[in-house]
C-alpha cells in the first residue's frame, strides 16, 4: 500500500498534468480579469505532511483557499490558494469595488465572486485534465475558506494519511504580470489519492 514507486518518466507525466491543467485555468483567469497571468513550470514533489504545511508561507499564513474533492476514475483533492492581497486585487478588479477586503469579512458579492472564480478555474483545470487523460472526473462544488493555510490544506491530507505519511503534490504557481517576483503568487495544488497514480500512468500507457 501507500504511494507507488515514481520514476523520472512518471515525474514528467505528473508535471505535464500540472502544465495542462494550470495553463487552461490561467487562461480562464486571464479572460475573466482581462489581465495577463504568468504561469511557472509545475513542481512535482513527494513531501512529508509537515513540509506540505510549510508550502505556501507556513501553517499560520492567512490565505484565501478554494477546495474541492475529485471523484470518478481519478480521485483526489484540489486547492487554489491565493495570498489575501492578491485575492483582494482580483476581486476588487472583478466587482469594481476597491474597498473590498477579505480581511474585514468581505461583502457577499465579493465572496460569491471568489466562489465563482474558484468554480471557473477548477473547472477549466479539471476538464483539460479529463480530456487529456480520457478519464472521468466528478468534482464537488468548490468550498471557500479564508483562514490559516495549515488548517485549509490539512483536509486534503486526511484521505492520504490513511495509507501514507507522504504526499505527492502537483504544484503550479501563477502570478499577475509585473508581480512575478513578489510574494503575490497563487498556487494550484493537485493531490491525487495514492491509488490514483497508477490510474493516471495507465491512462497514458505507462506502467
Amino acid at each position: 500500500m501507500g504511494h507507488p514507486k515514481i520514476n523520472s518518466m512518471h515525474l514528467d507525466i505528473l508535471k505535464e498534468i500540472g502544465n495542462i491543467g494550470a495553463a487552461h485555468a490561467a487562461t480562464a483567469l486571464s479572460d475573466l480579469l482581462k489581465k495577463k497571468i504568468e504561469m511557472r513550470v509545475p513542481k512535482v514533489e513527494m513531501i512529508t505532511f509537515n513540509e506540505m504545511m510549510d508550502l505556501a508561507g507556513g501553517p499560520e499564513k492567512v490565505v484565501v483557499g478554494i477546495f474541492l474533492r475529485i471523484e470518478g476514475d481519478l480521485e483526489g483533492s484540489m486547492f487554489f490558494i491565493l495570498p489575501i492581497e492578491q485575492a483582494n486585487r482580483f476581486i476588487q478588479h472583478l466587482i469594481q469595488d476597491d474597498q473590498f477586503d477579505f480581511r474585514s469579512n468581505g461583502s457577499f458579492i465579493g465572496m460569491s465572486a471568489m466562489q465563482e472564480m474558484g468554480n471557473i478555474l477548477s473547472g477549466s483545470y479539471l476538464s483539460a485534465l479529463s480530456d487529456f487523460l480520457q478519464l472521468k472526473m466528478y468534482p464537488t462544488v468548490p468550498g471557500l475558506s479564508i483562514d490559516m493555510f495549515g488548517a485549509i490544506i490539512s483536509i486534503g491530507l486526511i484521505e492520504i494519511s490513511q495509507v501514507s505519511d507522504y504526499v505527492i503534490v502537483i504544484n503550479t504557481s501563477i502570478s499577475e504580470e509585473g508581480l512575478e517576483n513578489t510574494e503575490m503568487k497563487g498556487h494550484f495544488l493537485l493531490l491525487p489519492d495514492p491509488e490514483s497514480f497508477n490510474v493516471i500512468f495507465k491512462a497514458l500507457g505507462v506502467e
Partner: peptide, 14 residues
C-alpha cells in the same frame, strides 16, 4: 517542562 511552552499551528479538522 516549565518554563518551556509547547505549541502547534494551523489546526483545522485535526
Amino acid at each position: 517542562k516549565s518554563p518551556d511552552t509547547i505549541r502547534t499551528s494551523g489546526l483545522g479538522s485535526c
